[in-house]
Design a binder for these strands. Structure first.
Length: 298
DNA sequence: TGCATTTGACCCGC
DNA sequence: GCGGGTCAAATGCA
C-alpha cells in the first residue's frame, strides 16, 4: 500500500460519506413530500423544511462532485441538481478560456490584463466554469466562507444581485464565486448561483462563520439571522423524521421479509432502503461503477 | 488597525 | 450600446 492508495481510500471514504448524507436527506425529503400526499392540508412548516432539505441535498451531492472533480475523477461536471438551467450550458469547459488567462488563474470569470495595474476593469472575461443554481432561505447554507465583492442592480429585477467570492481567494487562489439574489416571487428565498469549484482546503472553511449581509437592506440581514433559529427547528424536525424513517423501514423490512423492491413506482420505499446501505456497501458500489478507478492509481 | 463591506468605475460579451 | 461582472478606493466596524 503506497500513500497514493491510502489517499484514494480516503477520497472514496469522503465521497461515500457525502453520498450517504445526500441519500439520507433525500429520504427525509421524500418522506416529507409523501406525507403531503397523505395529508390533505399543506403545511407551510413542511414546505420550509422541504426547502431546507433540498438545499442540503444539493450541497451534499455538490461536495461529492467537487471532491471527484478535484482529483480529476469527473471529466466534466454538469450539475443535474440545478434548479434552473445554468446560464451557460457549455461552460463546464474551462479550457475554453483564453490561453492568456491560464497563468496563475485567479478564478474570476474575467482576468485582469497585464497592463494598467490599479486600473479597474482591465481584465479578460473568460467563459464561466461550472455553474449551478439553488434556491434557499439562507445565503450561507454551504460550509464555505464567502466575501462580498460587489452588488448590482439588475435590469427588470426588483432586488439587487450580490457577488461573493471565496474568502480564501487571496491566500489559496480559490476560484469559487457565487451570486445571490432575492426571488421576486418569494422575497424570503434567495437564488444562489455558484460559479466554479472551490480549490481551497475545507478544513479552514468549517471554522469560519459566514455572516454576510446581502445588501444595505437590513431586513435581509435580519432574515438571515432569523434563519439560524429556523435552522435549529429544522434540525429538530429532521431528527424526528429520521426516527420516523427508522420505524418505517423496520416495518417495511418486516412486511417485505427482506425481499427486494421490485415495483419502481414505490420510489419512496426504495429510497428508504437505499438510505440504509452502509458505507462499505456504497464503497463497493463506488468501486463497481466508478469508471475512473484506474485514474486513482496514478 | 485590520478586515469586511459598499459603491462607483471600468471592461467584456452579446 | 447596454447590461452584467469585477475591481479597488472609500468607508464602516469590531
Amino acid at each position: 500500500m503506497d500513500s497514493n492508495s491510502n489517499n484514494t481510500k480516503a477520497i472514496k471514504r469522503k465521497v461515500v460519506d457525502d453520498l450517504v448524507e445526500g441519500c439520507k436527506f433525500s429520504t427525509q425529503l421524500r418522506l416529507l413530500l409523501s406525507n403531503h400526499h397523505i395529508e390533505t392540508g399543506l403545511l407551510s412548516g413542511d414546505s420550509d423544511l422541504a426547502n431546507e432539505l433540498i438545499t442540503k441535498i444539493l450541497g451534499s451531492f455538490h461536495k461529492t462532485i467537487l471532491v471527484l472533480d478535484s482529483f480529476d475523477l469527473v471529466p466534466d461536471v454538469s450539475f443535474p441538481v440545478a434548479v434552473e438551467g445554468s446560464r451557460n450550458a457549455s461552460c463546464g469547459d474551462d479550457s475554453a478560456a483564453p490561453a492568456s488567462c491560464n497563468g496563475g488563474d485567479s478564478g474570476d470569470s474575467r482576468k485582469r490584463l497585464g497592463v494598467g495595474k490599479g486600473k479597474r476593469g482591465c481584465y479578460i472575461r473568460k467563459k464561466r466554469s461550472h455553474t449551478w443554481t439553488v434556491q434557499a432561505k439562507r445565503i450561507d447554507e454551504d460550509i464555505y466562507a464567502w466575501r462580498k465583492y460587489g452588488q448590482k442592480e439588475i435590469l427588470n429585477s426588483k432586488f439587487p444581485r450580490s457577488y461573493f467570492r471565496c474568502t480564501h481567494k487571496p491566500t489559496q487562489g480559490c476560484k469559487a464565486t457565487k451570486q445571490v439574489q432575492k426571488l421576486e416571487q418569494n422575497p424570503e428565498m434567495f437564488q444562489i448561483t455558484y460559479i466554479g469549484n472551490h480549490t481551497c482546503t475545507l478544513g479552514d472553511q468549517t471554522q469560519v462563520k459566514t455572516e454576510i449581509t446581502m445588501d444595505s437592506d437590513n431586513s435581509l440581514a435580519a432574515a438571515t439571522s432569523q434563519q439560524d433559529h429556523v435552522n435549529a427547528n429544522v434540525q429538530e424536525q429532521e431528527n424526528d423524521i429520521s426516527s420516523l424513517i427508522v420505524g418505517m423501514v423496520k416495518q417495511e423490512e418486516e412486511n417485505n421479509n427482506g425481499d427486494q423492491i421490485k415495483d419502481s413506482s414505490e420510489t419512496s420505499t426504495t429510497s428508504h432502503q437505499f438510505s440504509f446501505i452502509d458505507n462499505d456497501q456504497l464503497s463497493s458500489l463506488f468501486d463497481s461503477y466508478c469508471p475512473y478507478e484506474g485514474m486513482n492509481s496514478r
